[in-house]
Amino acid sequence: MSCWDTLMDYGLRSVGIGERLLPRSDFTLCQQFVLIGSGLIWNIYFGVLALFCGFFLAVALALARAARAPLWRKPAEWFVFVFRGSPLFIQFFLAYEVLTLLPRSGIDIAIGPVSFNIHTAWTTRAWAGALFVLFLNTAAYSAEIFHGALRSVPKGDIEAAEAYGMTGWTRFRRITFPTMLRLAWPAYTNEAIFLFHATTLVFFSGFPAWQQRGDALYYASYFADKTFNPFIPYPIVAFYFVLLTLLLIAGFGLVGRRLNRHLPAAGRPAFRFRPQLLR
């Protein structure tokens, strides 16, 4: 079987398209590369969606944390504290346990014992449950970054906006928000990289793999188990992640350049990956 055939059979295996059975004997390097790469689809899915949704929640949380009214500030502070103060590994595990426990009792009353798991089954699937945890997690970390940036917005910028007669929403949209984003961007890039790395924990803790559809690490451990040799599949995962990280840095670099495009070229911070390690 040529490598091209393998790609056809297993390229989308992680999302359930292609050959149903995983390779069971005579493992080739090509199979390992293809299947682990196929699993990477899940890592990208988790990373991109969690980052996208988390961004909005993070901005809201950052604003709530900066609010004077304790009614807003306190819940936001607690949320950030709980998610930043505990390991993601444990969050995944607890989330899975809670998701399997809570909805079922509700459903028992509603439907009865016959079709007891139909309507909540999807919450314990990794694609929903783990995504939810990652979303809350990255929102908490990003909120901390944005909160810090919000406090560093130059006073002069706000005063200038007020002099132009901007208030409330307009001022936020045109001055505060873009400046905050610009200041937070290097740290936010770092958070994105950490988040993508964190997606490897999904199938490793808590959430079960469904029909052998898993992420890159899931297939790597499958091969490590079948070939009894950990020295090939895990470095392949590492290789893919180095590529992914480089792509992320390049992508975020482009956005960062756009955010800074109004600044004089000399004063523009050359976009260098300088992690602030806010995770």
């Binding site: 790597a220 490590a224 995962v237």
Partner: peptide, 11 residues
């Protein structure tokens, strides 16, 4: 930095 710590730990 490019490699998730968990992958590194595994081998």
């Amino acid at each position: 930095r490019g490699v998730p710590d968990i992958v590194f730990f595994l081998f």
